[in-house]
């Protein structure tokens, strides 16, 4: 296997992690799905950690502080596995453990395993033309809560507590200079979540413990480059995600899973392939929510590593 395909694989894993993370809980996402694929029978393992904090949030469209929360911290420890089913079809599994806490007030934080995510990525088209390598891919994802965490405990809750079906289309154009552009559009269908109360108000009263979690649409764009003979990858990334329905957090009220959660975020991503250790890479991501509605103005720092290898069956 040539060096370039190893790199593709490794990079796929890390961004695949982020992809699954994104699928599971869009609002906490940092980096995008990418346009690359692992080879058939290739396995990737990627542990990573995300430190997400905010001290202001948007109550509807009003950006505010809340000293009874102070700074909210969300620490996520994830383990992701990727597998090349074929050269064109890859599968990903991700499982995060999350811990939340607030620096102010007297409310207890939450901790536990969040959602199990599964994703498949398929390459429809890979073609060279006009000096670019064009790649069109599609992903489908599914995630489901695997612990009895309470979604109706925002902003401390571990996640939205809903199953999510998602689909994405990815287009990447890579120039022979190893500068690339990528654009993605995705749709996330969320089912419902179960509160531990059978009445709640979301623009009107609901007499049920079932909360409708709004579907969401996302658009993102990335500009990046592989430098130093593919040993360093740098990427700028912009994500815009909007809920398609939902209510606003009411004045001085707590958020809830029925809210319309919109955000735009910008991130910088770097990934290094140390020459000394075969099959390993380390990566880091810095992201900032720059605008939003009913979400925290999060600053997110992610660090992780990947290890990639072929199963015994296939040797090169």
């Amino acid at each position: 296997m040539n060096i370039s395909s190893i790199m593709h694989c490794r990079r796929t894993i890390a961004t695949g992690c982020a992809l699954v993370c994104l699928l599971a809980s869009g609002v906490y996402a940092q980096t995008p799905a990418d346009a690359l694929l692992m080879k058939g029978k290739e396995i990737c393992i990627a542990p990573f950690y995300t430190h997400d904090t905010w001290n202001k949030y948007w109550e509807g469209s009003l950006l505010r502080e809340n000293q009874n929360i102070g700074q909210l911290t969300r620490n996520t420890y994830s383990l992701m596995l990727g597998y090349g089913i074929t050269d064109r079809l890859n599968a990903f599994v991700n499982l995060p453990y999350i811990r939340t806490s607030a620096s102010g007030g007297q409310m207890k934080g939450a901790k536990g395993i969040q959602d199990l995510s599964l994703a498949l990525k398929y390459s429809f088209l890979l073609r060279e033309s006009m000096g670019f390598q064009w790649n069109i891919l599609g992903t489908v994802g599914y995630s489901v809560p695997v612990s009895s965490y309470l979604s109706d405990y925002m902003p401390f809750s571990l996640g939205l507590g809903t199953s999510e079906y998602s689909g994405r289309m990815i287009l990447e154009a890579r120039h022979k200079t190893n500068i690339y552009f990528r654009g993605t559009t995705g749709y996330m269908h969320r089912t419902t979540t179960r509160a531990e109360r059978d009445y709640y108000y979301a623009d009107k009263g609901y007499y049920t413990d079932i909360m409708d979690v709004p579907d969401a649409l996302s658009i993102d764009a990335a500009l990046g480059a592989f430098l130093f003979d593919h040993r360093l990858q740098l990427e700028c990334y912009y994500l815009h995600q909007n809920s398609l329905s939902g209510d606003d957090i009411r004045r001085q009220n707590a958020p809830q899973p029925t809210n319309r959660m919109n955000f735009q975020s910008a991130s910088l991503y770097a990934r290094v392939y140390p020459e000394l250790i075969k099959g390993w890479s380390i990566f880091a991501n810095y992201g900032q929510v720059i605008n939003g509605r009913n979400v925290g103005r999060s600053t997110m720092v992610t660090a992780g590593m990947t290890y990639q290898f072929f199963t015994k069956k296939q040797t090169l």
Binding site: V140, Y142, Y165, H189, Y207, T208, I210, D212
Partner: peptide
Amino acid sequence: IAVIFVFGTFLSCDKDLPTGI
């Protein structure tokens, strides 16, 4: 997978929640 995905989407579209007795 695509069929499961699409089917699942339709299955879970019932969001007619009660707003009164």
